[in-house]
């Protein structure tokens, strides 16, 4: 950061805004941001983190779906990752929407207007199928025009409640859909899950540089908070005209697209999903695995989901091994 208060360079030895020491370390003395950092986040001593750890013990895999950029398909991807994983009826899937100001998941999953019920063991999520449940702030609003005009602390409180107070039960995969950016929601989900293992993040982008520049920021965020990256999905890459079958680049990969970025940053590209108008119109609860099974976009989705399953299985067994080694 350059000149000007509020944008002052961090002092030498700055613990970072996401650290438990933010605003409290010796280096913070005299820093103009000290007050803000100290007040900013939930303290590491927040008892909720331990409670969440207990709750998450019976959640096998946790996957975050991230992107620095909005409107690239995070929620569509999260929803279909959930649908795809739920095809295996022996697995329990949970989808958590932490986009507090723009919750799209209820609409995409076709459960808009559903309500969350309170029981002795907490809030019950909304079930789409027997083995697929969803939680979103959308279920807590009184109507489709109801806006959540909240600053950070209130959003953080909501995310804490979603993790601690929802009766998730035994879950094989918890998928977390996030809003764009690298701010409160992102810091909070990573902090609240800091004592429970997160498998990693799937990062969604579109091919053009305008999108990639935000996505590179998100990748830096992952490095900063030590969140493993499962891989990158390039969405809306190319469009085949349904009439003449010629492909056009609507969002041109002027700097080489996600492929080049992944090479440069040494992270895996999980796949590219072409623009299919049937997907763009699939936003009222239809699942395109059953609606449009033949579309190239659908088969690309299938491959990506398989790679994510393989990643999670591999890391799970590695973790088990290393735990056994420690005993």
């Amino acid at each position: 950061m350059a000149e000007g208060p509020g944008a002052a360079p961090p002092p030498h030895g700055c613990p970072g805004t996401s650290s438990a020491q933010a605003g409290r370390a010796a280096a913070c003395q005299g820093c103009p941001s000290q007050g803000l950092c100290a007040a900013g986040g939930p303290a590491a001593s927040d008892p909720a983190i331990e409670e969440i750890k207990e709750k998450m013990k019976i959640v096998k895999h946790k996957i975050l779906v991230l992107s620095g950029k909005g409107g690239v398909g995070k929620s569509t991807f999260s929803a279909h990752l959930a649908h795809g994983l739920a095809k295996d009826e022996t697995k329990q899937i949970a989808l958590l929407d932490i986009d507090i100001c723009g919750p799209s998941i209820p609409k995409i999953m076709g459960i808009e207007g559903e309500q969350v019920h309170q029981s002795g063991s907490g809030w019950s999520p909304v079930y789409v199928e027997e083995n697929l449940c969803v939680m979103s702030v959308g279920f807590l609003l009184s109507g489709p025009d109801d806006a959540v005009i909240w600053r950070g602390p209130k959003k953080n409180g909501m995310i804490k409640q979603f993790l601690r107070d929802v009766d998730w039960g035994e879950i094989d995969y918890l998928i977390v859909d996030t809003p764009p950016g690298t701010s409160d929601e992102h810091l909070s989900i990573v902090q609240y899950l800091s004592s429970s293992h997160i498998d990693g993040a799937v990062i969604i982008t579109t091919p053009q540089e305008i999108s990639l520049q935000d996505v590179r920021k998100e990748i830096n965020f992952c490095h900063k908070v030590k969140l493993p990256i499962i891989g990158v999905v390039e969405n809306m890459s190319g469009f085949v005209c349904p009439k003449c079958k010629i492909e056009s680049q609507i969002f041109p990969p002027t700097t080489g697209g996600a492929e080049k970025m992944c090479q440069n940053l040494n992270i895996s590209l999980l796949g590219k999903v072409p623009l299919d108008p049937q997907i763009g119109n699939c936003d009222q609860g239809q699942c395109f695995f059953s609606e449009i099974p033949e579309s190239p976009a659908t088969s690309s989705y299938r491959n990506i989901i398989q790679r994510i399953q393989e990643y999670c299985a591999l890391h799970h067994s590695q973790e088990k091994l290393s735990n056994q080694g420690m005993e």
Binding site: M1, A2, G6, L36, G68, G152, Q213, R216, N220
Partner: peptide, 26 residues
């Protein structure tokens, strides 16, 4: 734009609300 204040173009601005509010006021 905050883009002009970043040291490197890919730096992530990992800020919670209060810090964002302070910069917007400025």
């Amino acid at each position: 734009s905050i883009g002009f204040l970043l040291e490197k173009p890919d730096d992530a601005v990992v800020w919670r609300g209060p810090k964002k509010n302070a910069l917007i006021k400025q």
